[in-house]
């Protein structure tokens, strides 16, 4: 995978995107804009599950009318995110923050899947309640924490504190998939 990312980084289009004056910045702006739609609307659903907002809106209405927009926003996030990865593949692949973000995204997906597959099955009994049952509230809290952590780790990918080749604990290098031959260009 690492060598594949290395080869990807050497392709013409990846270099062009990386060095472009506007394309990279525009893609990143789209990524930030879509954050409001995907995470912003997901937060609304989480807060509804906790009974903090939109208490008069049944949970099923949130799922049917608000959640689809979260998915639209998420699709834009994935497309723009893949392009950002494509522009800087090798370094990003070995970024501890990128790897943490990927793991957190999987956890957020599992949390959403468990909520839909299990908790939501009984929704008819608590659809209009201000405070849904504990399992639903826990799913909301987990989602809020996970998405906050995802935004944090995503923002930190821009920083090279733990890039391969830096002097750092072995556990960090292992997590980043660093090999001894990798040299940090900024510490030379």
């Amino acid at each position: 995978m690492s060598s594949w990312m290395q080869r990807l980084a050497e392709t013409e289009w990846s270099i062009a995107l990386h060095e472009s004056q506007y394309a990279y910045a525009i893609i990143e702006s789209v990524h930030v804009w879509a954050l409001c739609l995907s995470v912003g609307f997901a937060v609304l659903l989480d807060l509804r599950l906790l009974g903090f907002v939109l208490r008069e809106v049944p949970v099923t209405h949130m799922i049917r009318r608000v959640l689809p927009w979260t998915k639209v926003g998420f699709a834009v996030m994935v497309v723009s995110g893949v392009l950002l990865l494509y522009a800087i593949p090798f370094r990003t692949y070995h970024s501890v923050f990128f790897r943490a973000k990927a793991i957190l995204l999987v956890l957020a997906g599992l949390n959403a899947f468990a909520f839909h597959a299990r908790t939501l099955r009984t929704v008819e009994a608590w659809d209009t309640l201000v405070a849904p049952p504990r399992a639903a509230r826990l799913a909301g809290v987990a989602s809020l924490l996970l998405w906050t952590a995802i935004v944090f780790s995503g923002r930190m990918i821009a920083y090279n504190w733990f890039d391969c080749g830096k002097r750092q604990p072995a556990v960090i290098s292992a997590f980043a998939g660093c090999t001894p031959d990798m040299i940090d260009p900024y510490s030379q």
Partner: peptide, 18 residues
């Protein structure tokens, strides 16, 4: 601080956009 700024953006963006 910037990451907090971004989390705030998601919340204000969601609250206005909805």
């Amino acid at each position: 601080v910037e990451a907090f700024h971004l989390v705030g953006l998601a919340v204000i963006g969601g609250a206005i956009l909805v």
